[in-house]
Structures are given as structure tokens and as C-alpha cells.
Computed example of a mutant assay.
Amino acid sequence: MKLKFLKTLILIMITTGLRGQNVIGEVEYRYKIFYDKIYSSLPYLTQQERDRILLTWGNPEGYSTRMKLQFWPEKSLYTFGEPYEVRSYSWQVEDYLIENNLKDQTYLKYMDQMGKTFIVRDSLTAPKWRVMNEIRDILGHMCMKAVSEDPVKGQKITAWFASDIPVPVGPEELFGLPGLILAYDINDGMLIVEAEKITFGEPKEPITLPKKMKGREVSGTAYLDLVKDFIKTSIESKQAWMWEIRY
């Protein structure tokens, strides 16, 4: 088994060298959330509330929308893509954009959360990843598994990155692996995000930041403190925080 994995790793490294020029492009992701799984895992909700949520939000196929990531050697931009015709998750907001500046090692997040619009700027700090001894094919790219944790939201994160696309970025707020993140899930399938299409070359319609960004400007640390307080207050009130903060 170890020999097989070593051979695969060598193949991935060779492929990385052959395809290292693929550092500009766009990825379309399917963002799929399963509210029934999320709510049934919350210990502070009553059984009556769990039953109500299961009746209202139970859907074995989850609720989907489309997101898109554009990437270059020096930066990435991430926002909503074209919506699916199927039912999307209900709390989709108007403003949600993340820019990672790899050259300056800074980020900008412009998003509606907790009933307000925030402009968050700070230095990039990658999650603490552990690369695992597993591989998976996604859209013809051999991807390696990596795991991490979000201590603020109490989430287990499993990501799959393609080392033959050597940009350390990914969807949502995930980055810092030696290759583009093409898929990830949270808490064993409560949320699943997976690439459906990759197009290399300059994007035909580049994502642009709004000319005028109106909102509360905070640092990354200050924003995380707000998220922690909001989650704590929600739990104490026996309410689910996922409606106000992106899961």
C-alpha cells in the first residue's frame, strides 16, 4: 500500500512539472448544504424543533447554488456564480466576495453576515493542514486529501487539492495547500463544495470589486471575535447561528 502511494505521489509530482503553466483560470463549484444534517447535530435544540426542521428542510439532495473562483499566480477572487434552476439555500445574500492577494499576503472579505455588511481586511493566515495518505480524481486532476479544523465554528474540514494546478487557493476561506482546492466538505457531508468545471486562461468576465463598498470595516481578529460572540449568544438562546453566518 505504501509503495502504491509513493508511486502515485511521484506521478503527481511529474504531472505538476508538466502542467505547472496552468496557473490562470476559473473554477465553477457546486455549493451544497444539508440543513437537516446540520440541525440534527445541534445538541441544544429541542426534539420538537428538530422535528420541525426535518419536516421543513429535510432534503436528501441538499440545497445547491453555484460559486466561482478565479485565480492568477498573484491573487484569487471568489463570489457567487450563475444560480442553479433548482431550489437554492434560502439565505443567499447579495454581497459575498473574497479576494486573496498572494503577493502582499493580505485578504479582503466583503460580505453580508449577522445582519450587517462587513469589509474585513487583514494578513493571510492559512489553516493548519495535515496532508493525508489518500488520493481522488476530480475532473481529471489527481487530488490529495488534507484535513483541518475551524475552532471558531467547531467544524471538521476535509479538502482535496490538485498539485498540478500550483496555486495555493480554494473556495470560501480555504487556502494554503500546495495546489488548487477542487473540493471540500464540512463535518462529514453537512456541507459539500465540489468543482464542476475548470477553464484555464484569462477569465472572460473577470470578477471585480464594487467601486463603492459600504459597510463596517474591521480587522480579521475583530471579525472573528464578533462571530464567536454571535455563536455563543445563539447557543445560549437555543437558536441556530447558520442563518446569519455562512456555514
Rank of each mutant, 00 (worst) to 15 (best):
L139Y: 05
V218T: 01
L69E: 02
V23Y: 12
K232D: 09
P127L: 10
Y107W: 08
T221I: 14
Y44R: 02
V147I: 13
P206A: 02
V152R: 08
F175C: 00
L6Y: 11
G215S: 05
E61R: 05
M67F: 12
D36R: 08
Y39L: 12
L182D: 03
V93N: 05
R246K: 09
T125G: 01
F71I: 04
I53F: 04
I192A: 08
I135F: 08
L77K: 05
S40R: 07
E134Q: 09
D95M: 06
Q47F: 02
R246P: 03
I207Q: 03
D137V: 12
K68V: 13
H141S: 04
F71R: 10
D137G: 07
E205S: 10
Y31W: 06
P178E: 11
I245V: 15
F230V: 05
E49M: 12
L97E: 01
R52K: 14
Y63I: 10
E94T: 11
M114L: 08
Y31G: 03
M114S: 14
I53W: 03
F230A: 12
I138C: 00
G58L: 03
K7T: 13
R50I: 15
F175W: 04
K68R: 15
Y31F: 13
K211L: 13
Y35Q: 01
A162V: 05
T79E: 00
E205C: 04
K2A: 01
E99K: 15
D185H: 11
M132T: 10
L182N: 03
L54G: 10
I192S: 08
D225C: 01
R30I: 06
Q21W: 15
E173N: 14
F5S: 07
K145H: 11
R50D: 03
F175D: 00
E194F: 01
P171Y: 13
A195I: 09
I33A: 05
E205V: 06
Y84P: 00
V86R: 14
E82D: 12
